[in-house]
Simulated assay, not measured.
Amino acid sequence: MTHSDRSDTARLLTPADVRRLAERLGIRPTKALGQNFVIDAGTVRRIVRASGVGPEDVVVEVGPGLGSLTLALLPHVRRVTAVEIDPKLAAALPGTVAELAPELADRLEVLAADAMRVAELPGPDPTALVANLPYNVAVPVVLHLLELLPSLRRGLVMVQSEVADRLAAKPGSRTYGTPSVKAAWYADVRRAGAIGRNVFWPAPNVDSGLVELLRRPAPPTRASRQEVFAVVDAAFAQRRKTLRAALASWAGSAPVAEAALRSAGVDPSARGEALDVTAFARIAEEGPAGAP
């Protein structure tokens, strides 16, 4: 069956469907779980198109909620593993899919779990991450899954617009920081569009953005990921300071930090926002014995 043959075999949720399902389950969207349900079918179709997934892909979806994006994904992919922290929503999702897309129900696996605490996923290795992520945990979830699942080749996530800017920022920009560098360890990251507020229920008081991630090898380095990330954390903990000063606690003293920076070919008077991930990796390689 071709991609186009399968494109319309799931009925997508309407705004009325979303409210009806929420009422049936006694669900009131909570800020604590970052719940803003997508009620616009055009938006979920757009996300699926932009994600580039196809018939062979195994998709991990975090925070499927009532199933708007899940139903849009299922016709196009081999399988969706949906990770949902809310037990009520997790329990209801298979029934929603069975009702609206019965011929696709066997492509769905639901895991009732906190994505940040998941150590492994059931079924075949996922190849893509496609999700409308809760704003308050978007960055740690993305980084955790990229580390946990080396089989992930690509991702498309919807996050708060400011978070999208930070994830996709390049060195030298005002929004460049820890999330930018850590995401760049795993993938090429770019903004992939803006999403308005009126496609959600309830409408959030912030705009959203799409972020595309394409996996690439980590920078070649003798340092471990943990060692590189320790340098990144130290550099941006006091981002207004020069690297010589910011890395003093990491290195043990400012003079030792300066020596490590010079050995790595980095100007000690530079700031963290000027460095790309490969420069941080070089600094970590030069780190003194016993540095965190």
Rank of each mutant, 00 (worst) to 15 (best):
residue 66 L to Y: 03
residue 66 L to H: 07
residue 70 T to I: 07
residue 73 L to M: 08
residue 76 H to K: 14
residue 80 V to E: 03
residue 83 V to H: 00
residue 84 E to V: 07
residue 86 D to M: 08
residue 86 D to Q: 12
residue 87 P to S: 10
residue 87 P to H: 07
residue 91 A to C: 11
residue 91 A to N: 12
residue 92 A to W: 12
residue 93 L to I: 04
residue 97 V to I: 12
residue 97 V to P: 03
residue 98 A to R: 14
residue 100 L to N: 05
residue 100 L to I: 06
residue 104 L to A: 05
residue 106 D to L: 13
residue 110 V to Y: 00
residue 110 V to P: 00
residue 111 L to P: 13
residue 112 A to R: 05
residue 124 P to T: 12
residue 124 P to I: 07
residue 127 T to G: 15
residue 127 T to I: 09
residue 128 A to W: 01
residue 130 V to L: 05
residue 131 A to C: 13
residue 131 A to H: 08
residue 136 N to G: 14
residue 140 P to I: 04
residue 142 V to Q: 02
residue 143 L to N: 02
residue 145 L to K: 02
residue 145 L to N: 01
residue 145 L to F: 04
residue 146 L to P: 04
residue 148 L to I: 08
residue 150 P to N: 05
residue 156 L to S: 00
residue 156 L to I: 06
residue 157 V to K: 01
residue 158 M to S: 04
residue 159 V to Q: 02
residue 160 Q to D: 13
residue 164 A to Q: 08
residue 170 K to L: 14
residue 171 P to Y: 05
residue 183 A to Q: 05
residue 185 W to P: 04
residue 187 A to T: 09
residue 188 D to E: 15
residue 200 F to S: 11
residue 201 W to E: 11
residue 204 P to A: 14
residue 204 P to D: 12
residue 207 D to S: 13
residue 208 S to H: 12
residue 210 L to T: 03
